[in-house]
Design a protein around this nucleic acid. Structure first.
Length: 478
RNA sequence: GGCACCGUCGCCAAGUGGUAAGGCAGAGGUCUGCAAAACCUUUAUCGGCGGUUCGAGUCCGCCCGGUGCCUCCA
């Protein structure tokens, strides 16, 4: 069965076929490194990481390139505010990016180029555009002439006339046309700059992705991704630039993820309604966040709320609970990759993923499968059931989880991690809790159920729930 | 103003022509000293009005409500 992907360029789902057989080139716009990542960045990171994982699962040899924009106005301004160099600033936030995104189980892309390492490639493209009459120099700046490209607007479904009518762009007397965008920007005396045929300056934003995409993949590659907000003007401009140089479309499939909303509004820096990943991690486990993000389809808007994260955390714990139940029964088991790949549960999940990466349906399948695993455990406990069958279910369950970047750890580990987060957040007095549990167990031993229930009540008021197991009394936070 | 998108159970969320997946919350049950966990059972006709069709949440039109892009933005 073939993989279908929604292509922003055509506005339709299309059968995916790479330019070169079995080889896929995917370029995704990364972040501008001047601040900590928020949930919106996480969504994009998780969406394309999941796509990366799935393409590899399909057997493609995938080269995944995700850039860092490490020079622009915001970076210059922020470094001035903080009185540090732009290099120092960007290095700091690249490190923070790795820490915050890494906790979401996002795999390293094949390449992670920085804009400032590709100045020469950009200059080459800009020169070429000028030679072909697609760009012009004006007082040290270089602009792309939008009117020179007839197909401008094909990606975003806009036309030049409408854009001009509603143009909100700055009036800039250096431009021949308000829609023209900057390829090279003359620098002010105290700003970072690079030499160019048009004097000292720095690149415009859009050209970096064109130059780096072309460097790693050549004139045409398979998938270009990013958030929906990049469709216009960023990706529209990329097409114009690349086409201007090569004469051909740079990308076969344009893939865009939807926004993260807060109360129905887009989460963004300018609205100030964003949560950084660091803040989220103080309250919730990263794996709960990842599950939340893959629980909706990647193109839909997703409403971020504490309630939704709490729900996701319950579900991820359920998944691990099923793993734990099954693993304690099965013990060491040897399931081959072939057996997993032939399991009907995997086929079901592949069917969903093949339909434009429908991770929400896969999550639903995981829920159903976790129930089947638990049922099988109960059967085995009562002398029926089949351990081999359970082992196979268990292994396939984990395998599918890992396709989504989930279920890579041990049940014990995640329980402990979530426990530690809650304990810190609620400032629980562990000594007192353990003391009450001891009291209760003493009362239970004496069959003093009244006293035992009092202890449970008191703990419940603290948000602590008890669970009497064969291994003793465990407690967790509600 | 232009161009898109969205409106499915209390909440979250799949489903692009054939009688509505899944999760959370709720209800009942099994288990338990009581609980918890787990398991079983249970809860919707899809914003409104028309139309196309043998048949529509799914296509078309209008209306109501919401969002996004058109400026930096994942």
């Amino acid at each position: 069965m073939s993989l279908i992907i929604f292509n922003t360029l055509s506005g339709k789902k299309e059968v995916f076929e790479p330019v070169r057989e079995n080889i896929v080139g995917m370029y995704v716009c990364g972040v501008t490194v001047y601040d900590y990542c928020h949930v919106g960045h996480a969504r994009s990171g998780v969406v394309f990481d999941t796509i990366f994982r799935y393409l590899k699962h399909c057997g493609y040899d995938v080269t995944y390139v995700r850039n860092f924009t490490d020079i622009d106005d915001k970076i210059i301004n922020r470094s001035k505010e903080q009185n540090i160099s732009w290099q120092e600033l960007t290095e700091k936030f690249i490190q923070a990016f790795y820490e915050d995104m890494g906790r979401l189980y996002i795999q390293s892309p094949t390449e992670e180029p920085k804009a400032t390492d590709h100045i020469q490639e950009m200059l080459d493209m800009i020169s070429s555009l000028i030679e072909r009459g697609k760009a012009y120099e004006s007082e040290g700046d270089v602009f792309y002439s939008v009117s020179s490209f007839d197909e401008y607007g094909q990606l975003s479904g806009k036309n030049i006339a409408d854009l001009q009518a509603g143009a909100r762009v700055d009036v800039n007397e250096k431009k021949r046309d308000a829609l023209d965008f900057v390829l090279w920007k003359k620098s002010k005396p105290d700003e970072p700059n690079w030499d160019s045929p048009w004097g000292a300056g720095r690149p415009g934003w859009h050209i970096e992705c064109s130059a780096m995409g072309r460097k790693y993949f050549g004139d045409t590659f398979d998938i270009h991704g990013g958030g929906k907000d990049l469709v216009f003007p960023h990706h529209e401009n990329e097409i114009a630039q690349s086409c201007g140089v090569t004469g051909c479309l740079p990308v076969r499939f344009w893939v865009h993820n939807g926004f993260v909303n807060i109360d129905k509004e887009k989460m963004s820096k300018s609205l100030g309604n964003f949560f950084t990943l660091r803040d989220i991690y103080k309250k919730f486990h990263p794996e709960a966040l990842r599950l939340f993000l893959v629980s909706s389809h990647y193109r839909s808007p997703i409403d971020f709320s504490m309630k939704n994260l709490e729900d996701a955390e319950k579900v991820i714990l359920r998944f691990y609970e099923a793993l734990d139940n099954a693993e304690s029964i099965v013990g060491d088991h040897n399931i081959s990759l072939d057996e997993i790949k032939n399991h009907p549960f995997l086929a079901k999940c592949e069917k969903a993923m093949n339909d434009d990466f429908n991770t929400a349906v896969v999550v639903a399948h995981l829920n159903e499968e976790s129930r089947r695993i638990n049922s099988e455990c109960i059967l085995i406990g009562s002398g029926e059931g089949d351990k081999k069958n359970l082992a196979l279910r268990l292994s396939t369950f984990r395998f599918v989880g890992e396709l989504l970047g989930l279920l890579t750890g041990s049940p014990e580990k995640i329980r402990q991690e979530i426990f530690n987060i809650k304990k810190t957040e609620l400032e629980l007095d562990v000594g007192k809790i353990e003391c009450l549990i001891d009291d209760r167990n003493e009362a239970r031993k004496n069959k003093d159920w009244g006293r035992a229930d009092e202890c449970r009540e008191e703990l419940a008021h603290m948000g602590v729930v008890l669970e009497d197991t064969s291994k003793g009394t465990e407690w967790k936070i509600k």
